[in-house]
């Protein structure tokens, strides 16, 4: 035999780092985002200002955090349309509990608890009752937002009791010049990336998305994995909800409206495959970054933000087309 066992064990399908990188959709999306940033700093004198960068990073962090949860769901072969409503639910619980004079940590626990409950209901119906994810989470999109309205009596909350300042600092403040939502996103992205690659949970989630039948046969706890994935997605939405209240300094019931679409777009642009089995934490973050850079550039270039949807939509199609072409080539 010409190859030794060691060589076979160590061999990879890509000869070097570069060929591996260029074969990945997320790499090209990252390049596009960086190029857009460079171009914007050259063309405008407003992009590279500290203020603007601060805003961009904070804004993209909110979408980025939920895109991490969404990527887990999509990689497992599902979809979660209820994240925007989970955001408002979490935000509203935070607001109501704090306005009632409770400390921040109680409110945060309640908000995360409410979010996890939403995720658990989604997960139980999908995994154990075998209902389609699209239908269940579409229903939850409606239910959770409506419950948030009931909870708040559809009033705006902007006074948050004794820990008012702490909440605003957490969501809107910065440490060492880095906005807190961005810190939260980086921590969550690292944790998610680690979990995807290095834990059984990650391995099983991708197995379920790749071939659910095979996963079931080989004894992967498919139902538990699905449940956990929807709870994780709801958790990320819950964290975002709390941070968003702090950032905005108030909650209204239209918070997070249509956010699920932006988040799904971020995940897909970042390489998550809606057919399941493929996605990465880094991709989720990069996808969210690109969307925010597009939005920001339109504002800075004085183009109507009505164009945002067109650009984001085109990017979704381009990213997926690119992936198709690459697969087509490699399957030849």
């Amino acid at each position: 035999m010409s190859v030794t066992l060691e060589q076979a064990i160590d061999s990879r399908q890509h000869q070097n780092l570069l060929s591996w990188l260029t074969s990945r959709q997320v790499f090209w999306v990252f390049v596009a985002a960086v190029l857009a940033c460079v171009a914007l700093s050259l063309v405008t004198d407003t992009f590279a200002t500290e203020r603007n960068i601060f805003n961009v990073t904070r804004n993209f962090a909110f979408v980025g955090i939920i895109a991490l949860g969404m990527t887990a769901v999509i990689a497992s072969g599902g979809i979660d349309l209820s994240v925007g409503s989970t955001v408002v639910m979490s935000a509203m619980v935070t607001g109501v509990v704090m306005a009632a004079g409770m400390p921040f940590w109680v409110a945060a626990l309640a908000a995360i608890g409410a979010s996890l409950a939403i995720g658990a209901v989604n997960g139980l119906l999908i995994a154990y009752a075998g209902m389609p994810a699209f239908v269940v989470t579409l229903g939850m999109l409606s239910v959770a937002r409506s419950l948030a309205m009931v909870l708040s009596d559809n009033k705006m909350i902007w006074e948050f009791g004794p820990d008012h300042d702490l909440l605003l600092w957490l969501g809107g403040g910065a440490t060492f010049g880095i906005p807190h939502p961005l810190i939260a996103m980086v921590v969550l992205a690292l944790a998610t990336g680690f979990a995807f690659r290095w834990t059984r949970w990650g391995q099983h989630l991708f197995a379920v998305g790749g071939n659910e039948e095979a996963a079931t046969l080989t004894g992967v706890p498919v139902k538990r994995i699905k449940l956990s994935v929807y709870m994780f997605s709801a958790f990320t939405a819950g964290v975002t909800g709390i941070l968003m209240v702090g950032w905005l300094g108030g909650v209204t019931t239209n918070l997070g409206q249509a956010m699920e679409l932006t988040v799904i777009a971020a995940a897909v642009i970042g390489g998550a495959n809606l057919a399941g089995g493929i996605g990465s934490a880094f991709g989720a973050v990069v996808g969210a970054l690109l969307i925010e850079v597009i939005r920001n550039s339109l504002i800075l270039l004085g183009i109507s933000t009505f164009w945002q949807g067109t650009f984001v939509g085109c990017f979704i199609v381009i990213a997926v087309t690119f992936d198709r072409i690459r697969n087509f080539r490699s399957s030849e």
Partner: peptide, 10 residues
């Protein structure tokens, strides 16, 4: 298993 029960993405 019949059909092998493999995950293509792994």
């Amino acid at each position: 298993y019949q059909d092998l029960a493999l995950c293509n993405n792994l």
